[in-house]
Amino acid sequence: MFRDRPVSFVRRSGRMSDGQERAWAELSDRYVLTVPRDVAATSVARGAFVDPVAVWGRDAPLVVEIGSGQGHAIVHAATTRPDVDFLAVEVFRAGLARTMRDVATAGATNVRMAEANAPEALEHLLPAGSVDELWLFFPDPWHKNKHTKRRLVQPDFPPLAARALRPGGVLRMATDWEDYALQMRAVLDDDDAFVRDFEGEWAPRYDGRVLTAFEQKGRRAGRDIRDLTYVRREG
């Protein structure tokens, strides 16, 4: 009721576990960005803005993962690439609580999190041209025909991604649903701000992506994993 387009998630009110509650209470001040809100709980107000140099205390490459889930991919990446800063964007607080617990256990200091709807974060929260890599791994496929309008990668997604990415920045995507992979490829191929960074039908698997529960679930179900990699054009 508060947005002019369907969101790519259903906001669930299920309670967090006791461990997740403790992690949120003890660690959220350290890891979670303060996001000015519009009306909806995970919205980002127009005019909201974060300064990456101020947030991380240094000028370093920035990787943003949309829909970070329980944080497996971003925690692994952050611990193996300490020279890079990472931002996890997720709407589900339980996933963020699990992520910050694992980040703290690993001793990583280069991760921050935003409890926010991804399109609004790309449009309002991140400075234009501030992101070096944007990751979208195994987003909700909304595989029923009546629900596909909720998919994140629609024609209005590339302009938001292009705004956040620096020229030459990389958009990495992966899904185990073939029809969504075809939709992603068609949408990005049709946008002048991006150019393919792969030959043939699909990109090779990104070796910086740790094997997550979502990917394993897709494999067990007999679905092929399809990667796509695009580069933000100069200018």
Rank of each mutant, 00 (worst) to 15 (best):
A40W: 13
V111C: 05
W24C: 01
G168H: 08
V50E: 14
D207S: 13
F92S: 12
H76T: 15
E133P: 03
V44G: 02
D85H: 10
G235M: 08
E65D: 00
F137K: 11
A60N: 07
D4E: 06
T212L: 01
F198S: 09
T34S: 14
T99P: 11
S13Y: 00
D51A: 14
R233Q: 02
D51V: 11
E120Q: 05
E201T: 14
E178T: 12
A60D: 04
F157D: 02
L160M: 01
V91F: 03
S68G: 03
K217D: 07
R219P: 00
I225E: 15
Y180N: 06
L165M: 10
D207C: 09
V84A: 11
G19K: 04
D59N: 13
A45K: 02
R101K: 12
D59P: 09
V50L: 13
R205H: 09
K149T: 02
E201H: 15
A221K: 11
P159Y: 01
G71R: 01
F49T: 08
N117C: 11
V231K: 08
S28Y: 05
D18C: 13
V84C: 05
E133H: 09
R46P: 10
K146F: 10
N117D: 12
F2Q: 13
D83I: 04
R163P: 08
A94G: 13
M173S: 04
L171S: 06
K149L: 02
G69D: 09
L182G: 07
G200W: 12
H76E: 14
F9C: 07
A128W: 04
H76Y: 11
V153L: 04
W142E: 06
F2G: 15
R46Y: 14
V210Y: 09
V63A: 07
Y230Q: 04
G71T: 05
A97Y: 03
A60Y: 11
A164L: 00
R101P: 12
V53K: 08
V131M: 14
G19M: 04
R93P: 09
V187C: 07
P141H: 06
S8C: 07
S8V: 00
G57T: 00
G19L: 13
D18E: 15
V131H: 09
V210T: 09
G222F: 05
V84F: 02
V35T: 10
P119E: 12
V91Q: 11
S17D: 00
A23T: 08
F194Q: 01
R219L: 14
R166S: 08
R12N: 11
V195H: 11
D4N: 06
R226V: 00
